[in-house]
Write a protein that binds this DNA or RNA. Structure first.
Lengths: 338, 338
DNA sequence: GGCACGAATGTAATGGTTTACATTTGCGAG
DNA sequence: CTCGCAAATGTAAACCATTACATTCGTGCC
């Protein structure tokens, strides 16, 4: 069931069949119709390996995420995949579990498959990986790696603006003692969020105590530990901004277990706006970061790298505040002891 | 940078290089070492398209899910992908959004890529799709499609046993009026869960009123609507089992919005045991269904179809009850009016 | 030392498509 | 009606690895 069979049936050459399939150059409508009929009749499907081998194009995009269990990423994948499929492009996925080794391995495997574009949505990317990526001539787009913007495209999030909005919201509620639950120091994106928070605090004229910064891991666990610590502090912040929702949610869970009340004892703000924010108790105030927008910009950035005629700079995405029930006015009274 | 370059550098023929790469037949250790050195030095990576074209093996598995935003599926994907990667197999993903058209399109695309195995984790599969799958000579494994067991392998969940456990738990708490929040009628897996629930009720000697069965969509929305309806019923069930967690969580959210108390007014049991169950309020009692086990069995079922020497029947998976806070003793008093 | 035989290696065909280049076709102008 | 030119189509090489089959090598035995 190869292209030759179709050519024979349609009474044309394989080249013509190929041209019809790829609409690469003009074929008389008459001939094209015959070819299409033959394709239909034989139920012919071109073999992608052969196409890729010969043409060097695979029509395959790779997408790498650091933690597919964080609902942020499935959203991203969903939008990216939908868009790709609409453009006749398949998507292959790798999940690194925040592990650089697995990232490198995934990139290697993708390259062997002659991938046409690669979206890397992981927080940490090592020097060695950068070299590997540079060595291959494949369009790459990152999420929030402005340091790499010279060599690769990158979709950027305006964290500072987001945190400013969050901090102003808290200040309006009377909060001045605002803490931050940060992501893993080793992750560049976590560091960006941390720095952005600090910058936002400064630009809001608020000062921040060293001990109000908690270290987390961007997963539920990080939030759980932070809650344990915060609720046992003498001079705890009255509000806590988190580097992502997963930690905020872990925080809520432990707060509830410890019978501590959010927002009465501490106001909480997450980051991302996962669907879970609506269903946890209290519903989580958070900064919405649009996965659809990230996915869309990333996708078109890759398309643009392949196709000179498209102009597309990934650009900057602005998160915005979604106020819910986890933030409230600062307590007048001293909070009760545990 | 093709195999010929390696052969030249190592002073052997391309055949030998290929044999070293695939360890397909004996090569003297001496020679193999030279080849490996050459590969290393040239940083050579075999071209998968060429390999697939010639050998007919792609080392690529496809995985199709119906809703990647339901955290059940990312878990499944994570385990499947990890296992595959460990076996040198890549994974490509498609998300159908419960849409049969997209399922068929995905299957087609996967076949064109010469996929070596296909795991279909969607609830609904049409006749036409079955035909399509049968026509290609590719190992396929399903999740919960026992009707197809003759032609394809399928990983099965013992729903009845699961629901029996759930119902007994509720009965121990004094519940007799137990309702069910079902999934979409159009989905075979939802129907299986519904039937299993009915069978479990019968085997527990409990009767079920028609109006205690609610129709849902397996998403948050379905649970939200069900809560609206249940709380406005005159003779509502005192406990509700749900076809999946997402709906149970939607139910909880709306219950909380309506100021109705779970489990005081109604006990709630979910199905799947998503990570969210721990963080919603109250924490959701549910039936744990192991994604790792499903993924593992599905993966080895595919491997076994490719490799005669492996014997592997996908087998049956038993969910088990995880009691949390959303179930409690049946209320003595008539519940307060809304 | 020569022979036989199995192991190791080499040669070349093969897989299905794309595409540079060659050829034919169709059509308008003279 | 012929010629010329652009458009349409055809021919065949190329993409890169695998593998059936052919050949060479190395060893043990007479």
């Amino acid at each position: 069931m190869d292209i030759a069979a179709v050519a024979r049936k349609a009474g044309v050459s394989t080249a013509t069949v190929s041209r019809v399939i790829n609409s690469s150059s003009k074929v008389r409508e008459n001939t094209a119709a015959k070819v299409r009929a033959a394709i239909e009749e034989l139920n012919y499907r071109p073999n992608s390996s052969a196409r890729c081998l010969r043409s060097g194009r695979s029509n395959l995009f790779g997408i790498i995420v650091s933690d597919i269990r964080n609902p942020f990423f499935p959203d991203l994948i969903e939008h990216f995949e939908l868009l790709a499929t609409q453009h006749g492009i398949d998507v292959t996925i790798a999940n690194t579990g925040y592990n650089e080794q697995r990232l490198v391995a995934a990139v290697r495997r993708f390259f062997e498959r002659g991938i046409d574009g690669l979206a890397i949505f992981t927080s940490e990317v090592s020097k060695a990986t950068i070299e590997l990526l540079r060595s291959a001539d494949v369009p790459v787009v990152f999420l929030n790696q402005p340091a790499l913007a010279e060599d690769f495209r990158t979709v950027t999030v305006d964290y500072i603006q987001g945190f400013v909005e969050a901090i102003e919201h808290l200040r309006m509620l009377g909060h001045k003692k605002i803490g931050f639950l940060a992501g893993p120091v080793a992750q560049s994106s976590a560091n960006r969020r941390r720095k952005a928070f600090l910058a936002a605090m400064t630009s809001c004229d608020l000062s921040l105590k060293e001990e109000w910064i908690f270290e987390g891991d961007h997963r539920l666990t990080g939030g759980r530990f932070a809650a344990e610590r915060l609720f046992s502090m003498r001079n705890a912040p009255t509000a806590l901004a988190c580097s992502n929702d997963m930690m905020a949610i872990g925080f809520l869970e432990t707060a509830s277990r410890l019978q501590r009340r959010v927002p009465d004892e501490v106001s909480l703000i997450g980051f991302d706006d996962l669907f879970v924010c609506e269903v946890v108790h209290p519903a989580l105030t958070t900064l919405h970061l649009s996965r659809k927008e990230i996915a869309t910009r990333a996708f078109y950035a890759l398309q643009a790298s392949r196709n000179e005629s498209l102009q597309h700079e990934p650009g900057v995405i602005s998160p915005y505040l979604v106020p819910r029930a986890s933030t409230g006015p600062v307590a007048r009274l001293k909070s009760k002891a545990g």
